[in-house]
Amino acid sequence: MIPGQIVACWIFLIAFVSGFSVKQAHVAFKGAIKKKPVAFTEPISPEFQKLSKLIVLDAIEDGLEVNFAIESTSLPERAILFLGSQELALDTHYLPQIKGRGQDQSYSFKVAAKEIPSALIYQATQKGESLVASLLLSSERAIDNIFIDLFDLKLGFDKPESLELPKRLGALPEIKHIFNAPPKTAPTVVAQFFSLLVATVSVGLVACWFTTGSVNFEGFPKGCPGGQFLAMMVSIVAMEYVFIKYYLGTSIFGTLWSALYVGLPGLWIGSKFLSNLK
């Protein structure tokens, strides 16, 4: 603490004498940067108009004091400073330090920025709402009890803080399921191009077979083995046909039966033909 932070620069004002004669009302600042106190030019009375000037606290270490003096003959039973947010409908209150004997009693409300409740700090720093400081001076059976808005308090520092309000029953945020993106498919042109490439290579294969002379029909089986050969070829083609039918939607059981009908005779005749080749 640096001594002499409170700048003693009193502006004397004789408050309007009503229920409580409040004098020398002003706001003093506590903090690293010295600031002149702000005096209330208007008398503290039920008709008091809120200060048009914003009161600003620049750092979290800063604080302010609302000071005034009241004549001992008319002291209020309750003296409370409220600090609140209208948006949140939330406030906190401060009790004064009362000093002095004799003619005047000095009242001093000390507000340290770091001791302001976090909900209010959040509202003031993150939502930019100015907090309202109001003063209550009242006594039982007094005629002119005072409950007035004194000034707007702005917190000029940034205290990144998330506000965690107490849990309350209510509707929860909506959730929509995010679906996996449908699988990407290639443009048909690309697929067609590659399919065509495969087809071309197939044609190339046959062409290659013929040009290299790998294909000659010199060994074409004739006579009885020729018949067996044809039967075997037919059964092979038939098997492939059965497979394609299966691919196009024939059930597995139908496929098994037809594969049996085609395959068994094919196997028999094929093995006969192949053993004849020896």
Binding site: V206, G219, F220, M233, V237
Partner: peptide, 12 residues
């Protein structure tokens, strides 16, 4: 299928 056909008809 063509391969099988050509294989069996070509003379080794």
């Amino acid at each position: 299928m063509l391969f099988v056909f050509f294989y069996l008809t070509s003379r080794p």
